[in-house]
Design a protein around this nucleic acid. Structure first.
Lengths: 157, 157
DNA sequence: TATTTACTGGACAATGTGCGCAGCGACCGG
DNA sequence: CCGGTCGCTGCGCACATTGTCCAGTAAATA
C-alpha cells in the first residue's frame, strides 16, 4: 500500500486535466504508455482510485444550501436511523462518530426555508433523540485530495 | 438552471460507468451522439459537472482515520485561520458555519496516534480558541449525489 | 407564419485504445 | 554466479472513438 512519486504525479495530472487519455498522460509524465496503463490499473485495483465519476455541484442542481447536522441516536436504533437517512436524497453523507450514538450528516437544501423541511424529514424519526444543525456559510477549502496525494508520494513507499 | 430527465439519466449513467465514452452513452440512452455531446458540454459549462477527476480514497493512501473538528475562531482571525488550514494536507475540507467564528473541518490521519499530531498542527495556531473533534467510526452513507440528481431530474424543469 | 432551438443520422479525417511482443536493467533466492 | 521475476521501454496493428462538419425535421416561440 502507498504510492510512489510516479503514481503521485499521475494522480495530480489526472486531477488537473481529467480528460487527457493514457497516451497524453504518458507523454506528459515522460514514461511509456504501457507504464501509465499499468499504474492506472494498479491504482484502481488497489482502491486508491475509486473511480472517475462526474463531480456534480449540488448548488448547480438547485441545492445551494449546505448544512451539517449532529444527531444523537437512541441506543440500539443505529441501524434503523442509517436506513432512514439513506432514503433521504438531501443527505449526501452520513458518519457515525465517537460519542455514544452520535452521527454526523451533510445535508443540502434548495433554500434556508427548504432546509427546515429537510431537517424535519431527517429528524422526524423515532430513533433520533436530538439534532444540532450548523449551516455552511462559506467553503474556504473545498473537498480536496491533491495535497494529501503529494504528501503520500513524498513519503515514498 | 436545473436539469431535465435526459440530463439526469446521463449523470446517473456516467456515475455508474464512468469509463464509457460519448458514443456508448448515446447508445445506452437511445439518443444521438451529438445530443449527448451537447448535453455534456452544457452540463459542464453550467457548472453542474465540475469535472471528472479521479476519486481518491484517503484510506488506500495510508490515511484510514477520518475526523471532523469543530473550531472556534477568535474574532477577526478568520482569514488567517483559513490560510493556515489550507496549508495542512490532512485538512480535506473546511467550512465556516453559523455560530460566530465557527468552522468545521474534515481531517484524515494515518492512525489515531497520528490524528493527535494533525490536530495539534491544526489547532496550534493563534486564532483558534477551541476545538472539538469527533472521530469517524463508520460511514454508512458515503458521499453520494445520485439520489439528489434523480430528485432534481424528477422535479423536471 | 417565420424563426429559432434541439435532436437526428450520417459522413470524414485524426486520434486514441486494447493488445501483444521483444528487449533491458534491477532485484532476489538458491 | 545463475536463473527467474518484475517493471519499464518502444514498437506495431486492428479497431473504436472523437471532434467536427452537414442537412433534414419536429417542436417551441415570436
Amino acid at each position: 500500500m502507498g504510492i510512489d512519486q510516479l503514481d503521485g504525479r499521475l494522480l495530480v495530472l489526472l486531477a488537473e486535466e481529467p480528460r487527457i487519455g493514457v497516451l497524453e498522460a504518458s507523454r506528459r509524465l515522460g514514461v511509456a504508455r504501457g507504464t501509465v496503463q499499468a499504474r492506472l490499473d494498479r491504482l484502481q485495483s488497489n482502491g486508491v482510485i475509486r473511480g472517475f465519476g462526474p463531480q456534480v455541484d449540488p448548488a448547480a442542481l438547485g441545492y445551494p444550501v449546505t448544512a451539517f447536522a449532529t444527531l444523537q441516536i437512541r441506543q440500539g436504533q443505529g441501524t434503523d436511523v442509517r436506513v432512514h437517512l439513506a432514503t433521504v436524497p438531501e443527505v449526501l453523507e452520513l458518519h457515525t462518530t465517537t460519542g455514544s450514538g452520535d452521527m454526523l450528516c451533510r445535508l443540502v437544501a434548495r433554500s434556508n426555508a427548504d432546509l427546515q423541511r429537510v431537517i424535519d424529514r431527517v429528524v422526524g424519526f423515532d430513533g433520533i433523540v436530538r439534532a444540532a444543525t450548523a449551516i455552511v456559510m462559506e467553503n474556504p477549502v473545498p473537498l480536496r485530495i491533491i495535497p494529501l496525494v503529494e504528501q503520500a508520494a513524498e513519503d515514498r513507499e
